[in-house]
Design a protein around this nucleic acid. Structure first.
Lengths: 210, 210, 210, 210
DNA sequence: TATGAATGAGTATTCATTCAT
DNA sequence: GATGAATGAATACTCATTCAT
């Protein structure tokens, strides 16, 4: 019944199984790394740095990941998961293209700034090996295509003016990815505030005029 | 008349002096490096790469710069020079805050994409040493302050609606800096087109409504 | 009882703990380097040389020291420690200034030649960074001052004739430091013999005549 | 009649011929290098340093010497010339072995400190290539043998007590060579004073007692 | 599961040397 | 005679990765 086919023990609510421990620790590692990569860049961050931040030695990290590249890969995947979540939310809740687009923007920024005040990376694409690049690239392309589709729907339904969808998406993605350079979770402006402001800027940038 | 007599020779338009050669070569080096840094990142670019692209050996580079850091520093300075040029242009030619802002955006992007199809870096701030960080940081802060001032002027004169100037600047800077990740000079969309599109997106994002 | 329980185990005389291993290896590294520096000079000795002599790779050295400079610094410190030990011995056992001085000379040379047939460096002062220079310089100055004091005491108590203490110390230090150039532990003359001969030469050079 | 078979010109007393210029400049180069090598060591001294001290560029040095090694070789030769001169002087003027030995010591130090306040190198033997080592080594060995012979003569004629000649020579050579570390021509003690003091210390060290 | 030790590949930097001008 | 430019070899140091314990 349990994930690994072991019988749920009587302690199941209290004790944390070895597998769960593993997952928890791995996630902590990924999040710590994502944060460091965002703040200082992939190549400026050594595994010693990450290990030190977690209070273990570098060698210990290799129990949870196979390589530094894998960490970066997983960070990208986490980041894309967040993107997908925001996408699903917007699709479900928005009615017009304009509504969906602004919802996507707001939700996305809320989620990436919400993770314990850390930001998930999206940059550092070039440090990936070819295979990973293919996987990540494909997901990202798909996501951007979906976002372009939203714009097209908005243009169709009259809520969005005629804009170059491709450039508009790049415009927005740049604004968001650049946040890693200036956003400080303990700074004056909360993630929610930024989400609202950026969503509005994007919305106005593409909104249809009467 | 003497070997050092600086009389303008009949060849003066044709022959290039040693000093001029030096400057030309140094600029070529900086541009090559800037391009590589933009495309692959500072730490992913070895001096061997840069030297190879220029057709010389690594050691030759040290005739023109003192260190890899100095290259990065100069790239930042070049980039900031371009920013200043765009700023001056916008100040001179625009009448309302709105006009100046969109002129700034358009001109800036035109300039950074115009340099022989290369883009000047803006990222990789963290690879700088402390002293350089201070210099670059101060100039960048000043530039962003000037851009915020433009927004404020627009709000004042009624051409721009009430927006958070700080966030609006970050929004725009992100969109621009992100270009290093996707812009290809030989791609389908020209720098001028992007400049126009981005300037319009920014303009609409902040334009006052009636 | 626990893995970290420091109860002296039955094996305590035989087994070597990790910490002890570390110290032993670090000392071996320092001694190997000192030997090489003495024989061929600091700049003529690459870390590859030292590593090869120890049967490891260069990178392994960095587990034990932070830099090549640190190795040189520690070699100097070892050498100064030996000097201090000889100084203490002479102070304790000699009665007249003359006795103490010759005991210092003899003991010092015995110790520096006794270390497994290797000689501790004293030269290569210029390769140190400024901070290290200050530390080493201060200790060396203090030691030379102590030696001058010995001479002064001998002059006072009549066992040593009136000589320029400063020059006499330089005279002796030169004779000793020069040993790195010609002394071979496996050569015909033992360290003890040299110690005796040099101590006598120094003694006669400064001894009071009746 | 002139050294190169050219007729002595009417200007011969006034004008400096090209050959003489060459020799003068080469000597200036050698002396500058010798001084730098003594003060900071062969490997701590770059040809750029030497060139800068002479007010020319590094490449210019290659008009006067074939390599950095050759400079070192010539410095050694100069130093050995001085040694020979002192040796000849002592042989000519001293009557007993003791007299000759102290004369040698004094004259030698006077000469090496007299050269415009610079000291000629003697150390840095290991930086030489094998062929140069052979030449220099042979001359040095011969010189030391001569000095040992002086000691033997003194023992024979009763002016010097029975000492190990080999060790006594090393003792003295060390004292002298070490001078490069502490002697400053503009310091408080003149070369002549040191020569007198060191000659006396050496003399007393080996003098026969009645 | 975690650690210290070791490695190999990579990289910035220095420097003696050469050469066209 | 002298220079600026370029080169190749050497070298200190970093870091991701492996492995025995």
């Amino acid at each position: 019944m349990s994930r690994r086919g072991r019988r749920a023990s009587a302690w199941s609510n209290v004790v944390i199984s070895r597998d769960e421990q593993f997952v928890l620790k791995r996630n902590a590692l990924l999040r710590e790394a994502a944060s460091a990569f965002s703040a200082r860049g992939y190549h400026n961050t050594s595994l010693d740095d990450v290990a030190a931040a977690l209070g273990v030695t570098k060698a210990a990290l290799y129990h949870y990941v196979r390589s530094k590249q894998e960490i970066l890969f997983e960070c990208h995947m986490m980041s894309l998961d967040i993107g997908d979540e925001a996408m699903k939310y917007a699709r479900t809740h928005g009615r017009t293209g304009y509504e969906r687009l602004t919802m996507l923007a707001r939700r996305y920024i809320e989620l990436i700034t919400g993770e314990m005040g850390r930001i998930a990376v999206l940059a550092e694409y070039h440090a990936l090996d070819d295979e990973s690049k293919a996987v990540i690239g494909a997901r990202r392309d798909r996501w951007e295509k979906d976002m372009r589709a939203m714009l097209a729907e908005g243009i169709e339904d009259g809520s969005i003016r005629a804009v170059d969808a491709k450039l508009a998406v790049f415009f927005f993605m740049g604004a968001v990815n650049w946040m890693t350079r200036w956003f400080r979770p303990d700074g004056g402006t909360s993630g929610t505030d930024i989400a609202a402001a950026f969503a509005e800027l994007l919305g106005e940038a593409v909104k249809a005029r009467d």
